[in-house]
């Protein structure tokens, strides 16, 4: 990717601490990072590096101890719960490691749920596009229990994209999948970015997953520790290894993947 587009998500001096006094843990320590629109970015780091915390703050799921996060022109640090809920509903999508589909709803009902919660009307054409892109044709009437893990995660991706959010956050989306399904899901995520023009920020600890992204942001010990463009599994692995050599046995963080 050569064309630099405007950043859709920005973090400025972002920090997050847990506990107080002597027991204080700095999960994030003054992070500055931009994420461009229309790109697939991976945030990678070892366990306890603070990558999940970073994502929670970027998505407005958790409150920061200091610094700012912007989604487009909106500063989301400092928004109240109501405004954050609206923001998540209308402008942000999520893909979870555990899929988190509602077992009592069909695949289609799961996909359209965010639009319904917002009281909106489902864009059938867009739904059709998503279903085709994600290879879910013929599965829409199935319940999650009748779908494979990979299929469930594809349903979850469709759910994250249905409201056409400005950015989708994916938290270890392949963590619960075998390698073949994982590869499939990652290809779908990449297709969503390349063919549908979406923006995806993915947290992972897996270099081969990170290699599907356009860019890898490395994080260690609560700080940005590197940035790799157009990664390959090898370059991502090398970056991760470099972190490990520099920061041996990081164990303080409370957030784990």
């Amino acid at each position: 990717m050569s064309t630099q587009t405007a950043p859709v998500v920005r973090a400025r001096s972002l920090s997050k601490t847990y506990g107080r006094g002597e027991a204080v843990v700095r999960a994030l320590d003054g992070v500055d990072v931009d994420f461009e629109q229309g790109r697939f970015t991976a945030i990678m780091g070892p366990s306890g590096s603070g990558k999940s915390t970073l994502m929670h703050l970027l998505a407005g799921l958790d409150s920061a101890s200091g610094g700012q996060v912007f989604l487009g022109e909106t500063e989301i640090t400092g928004l109240g719960d109501k405004a954050l809920t609206r923001l998540r509903r209308d402008r942000v999508g999520f893909v979870f490691q555990q899929f988190n589909l509602l077992p009592m709803f069909t695949a289609e009902q799961n996909i359209t749920l965010p639009v319904e919660l917002a009281g909106g009307k489902v864009d059938r054409a867009w739904l059709g596009t998503l279903v085709e892109t994600l290879g879910l044709g013929g599965r829409l009437t199935h319940r999650p229990g009748e779908l494979s893990g990979g299929q469930q995660q594809r349903v979850a991706i469709a759910r994250a994209l249905i409201a056409q959010p400005e950015v989708v956050f994916a938290d270890e989306p392949t963590g619960n999948l075998d390698s073949r399904s994982g590869a499939e899901v990652l290809s779908f995520l990449r297709r969503s970015v390349r063919e549908l023009g979406r923006t995806i920020i993915m947290v992972t600890h897996d270099p081969s997953a990170a290699a599907y992204a356009d860019r890898v942001v490395l994080i260690a010990d609560g700080k940005i520790a590197g940035d790799i463009s157009d990664p390959t599994p090898e370059s991502a692995m090398a970056g991760l290894d470099a972190l490990r050599t520099l920061e041996p046995a990081v164990t303080t963080g409370r957030t784990g993947a």
């Binding site: 809920t85 509903r89 979870f96 988190n100 965010p114 919660l117």
Partner: peptide
């Protein structure tokens, strides 16, 4: 708990 959290994450208001 997890499910309700997910719903909150994808835009369910506390009122809902």
């Amino acid at each position: 708990t997890r499910e309700n959290a997910m719903l909150r994450a994808i835009g369910l208001t506390t009122g809902q």
